[in-house]
Nucleic acid binder design. Sequence first.
DNA 1: CACGCGTGGAA
DNA 2: TTTCCAAGCGT
Length: 354
Amino acid sequence: MKYPYKNEFSINLVEWYHNEKRDLPWRRTNDPYKIWVSEVMLQQTRVDTVIPYYNRFLEKYPTLQSLAYAPQEELLKMWEGLGYYSRARNLQSGVREVVEKYNAQVPTNRHDISKLKGVGPYTAGAILSIAFNKPEHAVDGNVMRVLSRVLHIKEDIALSKTKKIFEEAVTELIDQNDPGAFNQGLMDLGAQICTPTSPKCLLCPVREYCIAFEEGHPEELPIKSKKTKSKTIQYDVFIVKNYEGKYLLEKRPDEGLLASMWQFPMIEKTTKGPSCNTFEVLKTNYEVPFKDDIGEQLLKFKHIFSHLTWEMECYLVEADQVDIQKENIGFFTLEEIARLPMSVPMQKVLNILK
DNA sequence: CACGCGTGGAA
DNA sequence: TTTCCAAGCGT
């Protein structure tokens, strides 16, 4: 037997979960759509951050159909500030496929549910086990941390092939009667007891089966190699105000960083080439009759993403009598701007205009 | 497989 | 201040 305390471990874990689980909004429903929404929002995102977004989102989109037919701009506005915005569009894409192809019934097997946009190995297992009571693995960062300690697995969890080891372990250990409680129990244990630093082993319901606890250094697991290298990009941001008091905004491309979010025009500062004067680049690119002189600097700040940093210098520019309105660029009043999805760094800029 | 993709909180 | 994240996924 590969896991000698398999049954005792699973029973203790599930019992602990039923006694100690947190009362979270998505734990008050069995609706697979609502579980789905919660799991997507929780990807790489803290519980406390998700809760208000989850409640507002399901108030606005209570059913698969209501989300399927929502305008994308409205959807992005609902996601504004939550980050990883492609999650919102992938979720809507997956929901549309369920409505159109599966008669609005979320698939109940891993093969079909995994084909939905934004539903990867973890999310598939989470929905199947929590909403449909299927004994499917759902391995996230918490699960790898907990099981690396319990089973003393020293493989590098930064390598994608390592996850397979944990998926096989969960498949073997999972409680067949209550797989949802088992999977959520592993995650809740990782969040509340088996934390990255200073694990609360004396409160742990499975410490008697934990090899890392027995050996005395659970905090040294898991092993994780990757390090974050982030580069810095400098931008000049132009707050262009026209004669009506409207501001020039552009929509970002529909792929990549902050896809489809609106922003004030921003030009990267480069030291090379004849276009190192960003104000000249602005006048060339936007064909708006700007005043000749760049205005005063209103704000200077730094915004740190997970993989890069923006250093922003913001200038006020006056434009003469123009009021262009195109698909991806136009002048807007502050009231109109408030309804557009804007990234957090752009909200920092917007705030100084209020 | 490695990397791009957000944000705010904790140590 | 700096680092490391937190219930991953798509390409």
